[in-house]
């Protein structure tokens, strides 16, 4: 009875969607279809993202999205990364005092999944890491970038944790502390890159802005725009590298924390701490 009711609701929703769509399109409302022209602001982004004719007003990256993410609206992305960082820190605060140590005399091959999957993982880890590095390092040229590459690279530690067991991961160096260090260093790199030009400006006595990338009319210093004949988008390359490290490490921390065996967590929690 409940089941029938559920499906009736589903069918009603599909029908009403179709009916609404029909009504809108029959009514001839202009909003039904996308506009033929792009918005003015977007036009400016498309015009200036890579434009050798306006050397003082370009981000020097053919990839408009990466340019917006790290150059035009870099501040957003810095804080977006810090949201992720703060979430990880808050999670670590919830799990504070819980350490995973691989038991000393343990047969690691006893844990984990079947031998086939383990072998396949061994082969593919290198491929995954190389492909993800390519995604990150070509972020200013092709779709991709630090976050994308980092998230792809994170597959490797994650499947290692799941397939070989947490203990194997910990004993082969995928530790919370080292990952936190990597994550923090990545973020510091992002911070340093975003302040690099303005520090240079303060030293040289020239006007400069936080998050500045290419030289501007009003602020004449900036990063080099090409490297070995390939557009590197100035700061974008560095941002992508650091973000790559930070994101891969961040994902790994999340999974390390999540895969801690429940018993050891309970042992710590029952150690007792409550506060008014």
């Amino acid at each position: 009875m409940r089941r029938a009711y559920k499906y009736a609701v589903l069918v009603a929703m599909i029908v009403s969607t179709l009916a609404l769509a029909l009504a809108v399109s029959a009514g001839g409302l202009g909003y039904a279809l996308p506009f033929p022209a792009v918005r003015n602001l977007a036009y400016w982004y498309l015009r200036t993202t890579y434009n050798p004719f306006m050397p003082k007003f370009t981000a020097s990256a053919p990839e408009a999205v990466t340019a917006i993410v790290w150059d035009y609206r870099g501040l957003d992305t810095l804080f977006e990364t810090s949201v992720f960082f703060l979430a990880i820190i808050a999670s670590m605060a919830l799990m504070r005092g819980i350490e995973v140590k691989a038991p000393k005399s343990i047969n690691l091959s006893k844990y984990g999944m079947s031998a086939i999957v383990k072998t396949v993982t061994k082969i593919t880890v290198a491929i995954i890491l190389a492909a993800s590095a390519s995604i990150a390092l070509h972020g200013q040229l092709t779709p991709g970038g630090g976050f994308q590459g980092g998230a792809t690279a994170a597959v490797a530690p994650l499947v290692i944790i799941v397939i070989f067991s947490l203990y194997f991961a910990v004993s082969s160096g995928i530790k919370k502390k080292s990952m936190l260090t990597l994550r923090t260093l990545g973020l510091l790199g992002i911070g340093v890159t975003s302040f690099a030009v303005i520090v240079a400006g303060l030293i040289l006595g020239k006007a400069a802005y936080v998050f500045q990338n290419q030289p501007k009319e009003a602020a004449p210093i900036g990063f080099p725009s090409h490297i070995l004949g390939v557009p590197m988008g100035g700061t974008l390359l560095f941002f992508n590298i650091f973000e790559f490290l930070a994101v891969a490490a961040g994902f790994t921390i999340v999974f390390l924390l999540l895969s801690v065996p429940e018993e050891s967590v309970r042992k710590v929690l029952e150690g007792g701490e409550g506060h008014d």
Binding site: E63, V65, F147, Q148, T152, L158, F255, L258
Partner: peptide, 17 residues
Amino acid sequence: DILLVYVPVAVGLYPAV
């Protein structure tokens, strides 16, 4: 770009978490 971000997050990470 969004696909590259979205797939790890929504197909990979959310279900896993």
